[in-house]
């Protein structure tokens, strides 16, 4: 009986890190955008928050693209 503990372990590790990182990034992006909206409502702008939000979403988009690549490959 040989169970591939190494593969199982890496699945566990990769899934954990990737999920937490993605969810975290996405949440930061969502927060950034809501900050921007609040600022816009008060007549100002929050360029940093917006740029940061877009950067976060870009990274998430990259992850989705990589996911599609994994499905196709």
């Amino acid at each position: 009986m040989k169970i591939d503990w190494a593969a199982l372990g890496s699945v566990f590790g990769v899934s954990l890190v990737a999920t937490v990182a993605l969810v975290g990034l996405f949440t930061l992006g969502v927060i950034g955008l809501s900050k921007q909206e609040q600022a816009a409502a008060q007549g100002g702008s929050a360029a940093l928050a917006r740029t940061g939000a877009y950067a976060c979403f870009a990274l998430c988009l990259g992850a989705v693209a990589y996911g599609i690549y994994l499905i196709v490959a």
Binding site: T19, V30, I31
Partner: peptide, 27 residues
């Protein structure tokens, strides 16, 4: 999947605690 989702959920509630539901729902 369960552990990953638990941690992800905890994280998103933690860092998103100050935002209003209305602003983030779309995201």
């Amino acid at each position: 999947a369960g552990i990953a989702a638990t941690l992800g959920t905890k994280l998103t509630y933690k860092i998103g605690a100050k935002t209003s539901e209305k602003d983030t729902a779309k995201g």
